[in-house]
Design a protein around this nucleic acid. Structure first.
Lengths: 159, 159
DNA sequence: GCGCGATTACTCGGATACGAAATGTCCGAGTGGATCTGG
DNA sequence: CCAGATCCACTCGGACATTTCGTATCCGAGTAATCGCGC
């Protein structure tokens, strides 16, 4: 089980956009320079964030991406759901109904099987923790010098 | 982010082995019949459980797999770690040190970055829930008729 | 009838193909500013 | 010198290759029961 790099990239970009909040869109090329990432691929990874309403995209010259809402209102759950999809990591294929299960009364399958329930319970805890943390919280964990350094860096590459 | 089917198969097989606990090994072919799964592929999926000491394999005729320890002592965390690997789903690639981060003092990177800490916190909650549940707990969630039906089915296919 | 050995059938384990999904790249649609022209 | 229209550079969005990982299959090593043979 492996999570794609889109979540890491997306979260860092969201934090960066929040820090250099000059109300002007930031192009993917600039964001890619900030983290030294492949620009075209980063763009592809940010598009899901636009579809789900986390980012706002401005086409045309001087265009780019902006935060669609305040950092305190963007949870990590939102970002993970947007990038990695909404369906659960563990998907129950109901193999209990196969083989030996074909002999059981259908009423036995009224509630979800124990395996799925146990896995879902763990995954719910994961989602709960993700939903409890916002981009603003992540910003608060950064060292104090990081925001100003980011603004300076951005000014340098936009010259 | 998608979890492989090995976890589901492995857990169901562990429960089945615990139910028909006649202290005799069960071959993968029989386990595959119980859940109507591809036998060869199921075998490949159970091998990690042997390597990590959850299952015991008996080679030769009348061989097969047996539980290496009691169901109460097999946590879901053990199974997930064995099948899906031990490394975390979210892997921090330290992109904060790239680009704009190259200008920062190395002392700023003493503790993990906020993104990684936030994701790790959620994943820890997930692992904690997995470690808190055992195969025995999953067995307890099954309908009462399931164990006897499984034993009957196994007797029929071993004739 | 009984003990011993070779044979045989059955099992796990790892090495080998196949397919799907993630990764990475490209071109087209659209927008805003800059430039050029005419008054 | 100024207003307007045109042109151009820059951006996002989705369609198109490439690589990696998960899925599926096969063959070889090893074991235990079975069968046959000799005593």
């Amino acid at each position: 089980m492996q999570m794609g790099e889109g979540v890491e990239w997306g979260l860092h970009c969201l934090v960066a956009l929040a820090w250099l909040d000059d109300h002007a869109p930031v192009a993917t090329g600039r964001l890619a320079e900030i983290f030294d990432l492949p620009p075209e691929y980063l763009k592809k990874r940010l598009q899901p964030l636009v579809r789900t309403g986390i980012l706002t995209s401005t086409p045309g010259a001087r265009g780019g991406y902006s935060l669609a809402r305040r950092p305190e209102e963007i949870t990590l759950m939102d970002v993970v759901a947007a990038v990695e999809g909404r369906d659960e990591a563990f998907r129950c294929t109901e193999i209990r109904q196969q083989g030996a299960g074909t002999l059981a009364a259908p009423t036995e399958f009224g509630d979800a099987c124990g395996v799925a329930r146990a896995m879902r319970r763990a995954e719910t805890a994961w989602r709960r923790e993700l939903a409890a943390q916002t981009v603003a919280d992540v910003m608060g964990m950064a060292p104090p010098g990081a925001p100003v350094r980011m603004r300076r860096f951005y000014q340098d590459i936009t010259l």
